[in-house]
Design a protein around this nucleic acid. Structure first.
Lengths: 334, 334
DNA sequence: CTGAAAGCGCTAACAG
DNA sequence: CTGTTAGCGCTTTCAG
C-alpha cells in the first residue's frame, strides 16, 4: 500500500498523510482519521521514498575491526543504545582488522547516504586521510585521535603510566613490556609512552630484551610472552597493552611455574571479563567502552542535527583496578 | 551528482548509465565512456532511488539480544562475512534481552524494507508469532527452532547429554544442574532434557535440591551456585547451561575451597574464550557459532533469491572438549 | 543495442 | 489548516 491508496482509504489527501507522519499542521479530525486508518492497515511510508526527498536515511554506519572483541562490542552497544532512542538504525561494517576495508566501508556507507559514521579506529593510512577528506559526512572516531574530526578516546598514556608505576612501587625493577604495534597510536604508542614515563620516574632504563610486540589476542600474548620469559634474566613484572595479551602471558607463566605475583606481576588494560575470572585476577585499567560509544553517538547526533558543529575531542578517564596479579602482600595460592 | 548530470557528463543517455550499473545491454564504447566518467567523478547511483524502483534495498536485518556476548558476536561475524561477499549490508537491532524489542525490530526492519532478517532468537511469545506471520519477508532463526521457518540451531540436547554423561562416567553420583529459563527452548529446555537423559541412563533421579536456574551471566552463575553449594549434601558435579554460568560457579567453588575437579566437576556449554583461560580450564561443548551465522546467511540469501525456497532446518553438531574442570585422574594444582 | 518517457512513493512549495 | 502539483533519482518498458 502506498500513500495514495492509503490517503484514499483514510479519506484524506496525500498531503495530509505526509503531514501526519512529519508533524505538520493537521486538524484533530484528520489526525484521528489517519491514526485509525494506520491502525487498521499498518501503513507506514516507505523509507526509501522519503530518503530520496529528504536526503536523510535515519541510518548510522558503524565501522569496527571485530565484533567478537569485548571492547568493540561494548562500544557498539553504547552507540546502539543512544541512536535507537533517537530513531536511528545502525549499519554495521566489520573489517576483520583490515584497514583497507575500513576505507571501503567508508565509501560504501557514503554511497548508502547514511546520516553519519562512527569509526572504531585502529591505524590510519594515507587512504584513510583521503577517504575522510572526501566524505563530507558527520564522522566520529572512537579509540583514536585524528586532527579535525570529533574523537572519543581513552587516556591510554595515563592508564599505562599508572599501572606500570603501581608495579614498580611494589618493588619490581625489571619491567617487561608486551605491547601492540605502534602503528596504533592509542593502544600502541600512547601506552608505550605511559610505560616509559613510569620507568623514567623510577630512574629505570627500558631494556629492549624485555620488550615485545604482540597481536591483540590471548594466543599471541602467550606466544610473545615466551620470548620475554626464556631470556637469561627475565622480567619481574609485565605491562601488557591489553587484557587479552596479559591473560596469554599469564598462562605461559603458570605453565613455566613462575609464581604470580611473587616472581612476576602482570597487568593489562581494558578491564574485560576475562581478566576478572583468570587464574589470578588481573590488575588492569578500566576503560569506559560503553560510555565511549554513548558519547560518540551523542556527538554524532549533534553533528547530524547541525552540520556546522565544531569538532571536539573527548578523552575519557580510566580507573585502576588492583587485583591478585600484582598484589604482592598477601600471597594467594590455589 | 545525479544520473541526469552524470549521463550528460559522460555523453550518454540516462538509460545507458542505468544499464551500466545493472548489467544491461551496452556497447563496448559506451561502457568505456561511462567507466571513465565514473572514475573521474566517483558517481554512484543513489540506493534510495533504486530501492524505490527495484523493491530491494541490499539490507539484511540482524536482531540479537546482546553484542557483548561472545556467542552472539561470533554468529554475527559469520553472518557479516557471507552477506558482505554478496554485497549486502547489515542492519543491527540490539534488544538488550527484551523480547518485546525483538518484535519491535521485526516491524522496524520490515518498514525499512530490508531484503531479509536473521533473528538470534531467545524466547518466543505470542507477539512473535503475530510478527512472524505478518512479516512476509525471508526470515532465518538462529539458535532456536520454530515451525515453518528456516532455522539454524545446535544439538543442545545432545551436547548436554554427552557432558553430563562424561561426568557421571567419571564417578559423579550427585549431579547438580545450573540451567537457564525453560522459556528458552534451546538453552533451557533442550539442555535440561539432555541432562535428564544422562541421569536416567545411570539410573539416577534428578534431585530438585541440586537444580537451579540462572541468568546468562557469570555473576548470576556465581550467585545461583551458592544455593546449590550451601545445602547439607552438595552436588559432586555441576552441569551448567552456559560457559559463563559455569565460570561463575567455578569462582564460588574456589572461594569455598571446594576442590575442582576432585570434589566438584564442572562443565559448561559453548566453548567461549573465558572457559579456556579459567583457573581450571573448563570442560565444555563447542558449538559452532560462526558456522551457524554463515549458514544462516546462506540460507537467507537463497530465500531472498528465490522466495519460494522451502524452509529448512540445520542442526549443527557439537564437539566435547575435555579439560581440567572434569579431569579427575591427573590431579592438577598450581 | 539505444533513448524517450512514464512512473516508483514520497515531500514540500504553493496557492488557497 | 488544506489539496494540488512538481519533482527527488532512478529503472524499465517501449518503440525504434
Amino acid at each position: 500500500m502506498n500513500i495514495t491508496e492509503f490517503a484514499a482509504y483514510a479519506g484524506v489527501s496525500k498531503a495530509a498523510v505526509s503531514r501526519y507522519f512529519n508533524g505538520g499542521y493537521l486538524s484533530a479530525e484528520k489526525r484521528q482519521a489517519i491514526q485509525k486508518a494506520v491502525e487498521e492497515t499498518g501503513y507506514h511510508p516507505s523509507e526509501s521514498a522519503r530518503s530520496i526527498r529528504t536526503h536523510r536515511t535515519g541510518l548510522i554506519g558503524v565501522i569496527l575491526p571485530k565484533l567478537s572483541s569485548e571492547s568493540c562490542a561494548r562500544v557498539t552497544e553504547g552507540i546502539s543504545q543512544i541512536t535507537a532512542q533517537e530513531g536511528y538504525q545502525l549499519l554495521l561494517g566489520v573489517t576483520a582488522n583490515d584497514p583497507a576495508k575500513e576505507v571501503e566501508y567508508l565509501t560504501l556507507f557514503k554511497q548508502r547516504q547514511v546520516d553519519g559514521i562512527i569509526l572504531l579506529a585502529t591505524i590510519f593510512t594515507q587512504a584513510h586521510r583521503l577517504a575522510f577528506d572526501s566524505l563530507h559526512l558527520p564522522l566520529v572516531i572512537v579509540g583514536q585521535q585524528y586532527p579535525r574530526y570529533s574523537c572519543v578516546c581513552h587516556d591510554d598514556l595515563g592508564a599505562a603510566y599508572a599501572l606500570t608505576k603501581l608495579m614498580l612501587s611494589q618493588g619490581a625493577r625489571r619491567p617487561g613490556y608486551l605491547g601492540v604495534t605502534t602503528q596504533d597510536e592509542a593502544a600502541g604508542k600512547e601506552r608505550y609512552q605511559g610505560f616509559l614515563k613510569a620507568l623514567s620516574e623510577f630512574h629505570l632504563r627500558p631494556d629492549p630484551r624485555l620488550m615485545c610486540t604482540a597481536q591483540f589476542t590471548i594466543d599471541d600474548g602467550y606466544t610473545q610472552a615466551q620470548k620475554l620469559l626464556e631470556g637469561a634474566r627475565r622480567p619481574d613484572c609485565l605491562f601488557c597493552a591489553t587484557d587479552n595479551i596479559a591473560i596469554g602471558a599469564m598462562q605461559r607463566c603458570r605453565e613455566l611455574g613462575i609464581s604470580i605475583p611473587d616472581q612476576m606481576m602482570i597487568c593489562g588494560v581494558g578491564d574485560t571479563k576475562i581478566g576478572q575470572v583468570a587464574a589470578f585476577a588481573l590488575t588492569t585499567a578500566r576503560l569506559h567502552y560503553k560510555t565511549a560509544g554513548m558519547d560518540a553517538a551523542r556527538l554524532l547526533l549533534t553533528q547530524i542535527a547541525n552540520r556546522e558543529t565544531p569538532s571536539k575531542i573527548l578523552r575519557l578517564d580510566y580507573e585502576i583496578l588492583t587485583r591478585e596479579s600484582t598484589n604482592r602482600k598477601p600471597s594467594e595460592t590455589m
